[in-house]
Design a protein around this nucleic acid. Structure first.
Length: 494
RNA sequence: GGUCUCGUGGCCGAGUGGCUAGGCAGUGGUCUGCAAAACCAUCUACAACGGUUCGAAUCCGUUCGAGACCUCCA
């Protein structure tokens, strides 16, 4: 299929035709988590969004090389002072090694993302494993005059960079504006820097600092922007296709990445910058200080004061995909319940397609359905529209079931394939049947019970028939009477 | 204070200069012994005020409101 993919590029603030550098291999780098805590709803939105993007690119292009960092070092709790990084802080809290913190939360992250059916990236590089590479680039930046050393730390000289490059092009800022802005703000602890907006490439560490490495400037640790520059370029080349991340990282993190990379190589960095939007909870920002954060694991178990019940991973995923990745997503129990029911109905479409009867000719139009689905995804990965088209196709299924429309064998094959490709491969949804264990014995037992109930019904003994149904319901088994007898299934809990 | 984004019906959430988004909930039906499921039909919109236009919820301006970033955060 010819790609007419259009993506919203933060760099230009408009939708652009996506033109890969190399049609055979697309390079994509997405800022990953700093693993010092459990994965939360924000992570879910972010990485499900980029998973959708990744899956669609994989669907359209021959090969996609997907790199996502797992940050295990270097992010200070406060860039301005001499404080710990977040991982070191957590390691003191938990009284375990910093790298044990990293291991614990990295696996927590993978566990939750796996549950959400987020496909793994090809490479998950970690900054602690790329210290020599980071030092190398910092040295080059010093040699080129874009960085300066102060007391064992190294800072990036933003004003110098801005003379030949354009600092602020991604976030729509200018150095002049930031000068003015800085005048209105009292910034503490930045006496080492030439300017307040300069940022650390390497920070000197004192002996109490848990994570530190040798460098040409003494013992220290890398700054919190350099890792992404180094690791993206190492695995994808100096200039690559897509760089993604959360909107909140647009400035300063991504801006600094660009500055470092382009100062280092003199070449453009990523061609397309994609940013996903944030989660709000009942209209409010989700944040630690507000105390309204929800971890993924809590969503799956319902164990959080803001949750009325547990929501399955696929409900969460479907909920996220029902809004556009660049929109904020408002979380509430009501919205989650709506997503849960909607997803359930969509999921049932898979079976209903299999049961459709074919006719000699079609009165339905599969090719226009196909076109509308691809059109939606080609328009900056518009999953909500794609999902709405799948719901529309449910109406078509109902019409065929009811005999008001017909479908040919060829069209049915095409329709089934189309529905399944979008459901499973592109949207990355999975069937959740919650079937405890359906085996021969349960099947036989249920048949036995249903036979007795059928006998009761034949005698119009409704009391017994209803009692059987009610008692089974207490066991989470639901009975549905149809024209061809009764069906039973384990009830979906989520 | 600076930069930027957004305000859609009961809830969530797309889109757009003129044609039903979709989901959930509600209401009325079909089916059913009843129920559930399913299906059909249907009610609530485009923050406010100006302007441009044959026509704007969609473009422009103002006001009000919300949010993001400027400090760690997906």
């Amino acid at each position: 299929m010819e790609s007419k993919l259009v993506v919203y590029n933060t760099l230009t603030r408009k939708k652009e035709a996506f033109k890969p550098i190399d049609r055979e291999v697309i390079g994509m780098y997405v800022c990953g988590p700093t693993v010092y805590g459990n994965a939360h709803l924000g992570h879910a939105k972010s990485y499900v969004s980029f998973d959708l993007i990744y899956r669609y690119l994989v669907h359209v292009f021959p090969k996609v090389k997907y790199v996502q960092n797992i940050t295990d070092v270097g992010h200070l709790t406060d860039d301005a002072d001499e404080g710990d990084d977040k991982i070191a802080k957590q390691s003191r809290l938990e009284k375990i090694d910093p790298m044990a913190v990293v291991e614990r939360y990295m696996y927590n992250y993978f566990r939750d993302m796996d549950a959400l059916n987020v496909r793994r990236a090809d490479i998950y590089p970690r900054p602690s494993g790329h210290i020599p590479e980071q030092i190398e680039i910092i040295e080059n930046l010093i040699n080129k005059g874009f960085a300066y050393k102060v007391n064992g730390s190294v800072y990036f000289d933003v004003a110098k960079y801005d003379e030949t490059f354009d600092y602020g092009k991604l976030s729509g800022r200018s150095v002049e504006e930031m000068m003015e802005g800085a005048a209105n703000r009292v910034l503490a602890g930045q006496s080492e820097k030439k300017n307040g907006f300069d940022f650390a490439l390497w920070k000197k560490a004192d002996s109490s600092h848990l994570m530190q490495w040798n460098s040409p400037w003494g013992k220290g640790f890398p700054g919190w922007h350099i890792e992404c520059t180094v690791m993206s370029q190492k695995y994808l080349g100096d200039n690559f296709d897509i760089h993604g991340g959360g909107l909140e990282n647009q400035f300063p993190h991504h801006e600094c990445e660009i500055a470092q990379a382009e100062a280092h190589t003199g070449k453009p960095f990523a061609n397309y910058w994609l940013h996903n939007n944030m989660v709000t909870i009942n209209g409010q920002k989700m944040g630690k200080s507000l105390g309204n954060g929800i971890f993924c694991a809590e969503l799956f178990t319902g164990d959080n004061f803001q949750l009325e019940r547990a929501y399955s991973p696929m409900t969460i995923r479907f909920f996220i995909l029902q809004s556009h990745y660049r929109s904020t997503l408002d979380f509430s129990n009501e919205a989650l319940n709506a997503a849960s029911k909607g997803f359930d109905r969509l999921q049932k479409g898979l079976d209903r397609i299999n049961d459709l009867k074919v006719s000699n000719k079609s009165t339905v139009d599969i090719s226009s359905l196909k076109e509308s689905l691809y059109h939606a995804m080609n328009d900056d990965f518009n999953s909500p529209i794609a999902i709405s088209k799948l719901f529309d196709s449910l109406k078509m299924i109902a019409a065929i079931e009811g005999g008001n429309e017909t479908i040919s064998k060829v069209d049915l094959v095409e329709f089934k394939a189309l529905f399944e490709v979008f459901f499973f491969s592109i949207l990355g949804l999975q069937v959740e049947n919650n079937e405890v264990v359906s085996n021969e014995i349960t099947d036989e037992l249920m048949q036995l019970i249903l036979d007795y109930r059928k006998a009761a019904k034949t005698e119009k003994n409704w009391a017994v028939a209803d009692q059987i149904r009610d008692r089974l319901k207490e066991l989470n088994i639901s009975i549905k009477d149809g024209k061809d007898g009764a069906d039973w299934s384990f009830e979906k809990k989520n």
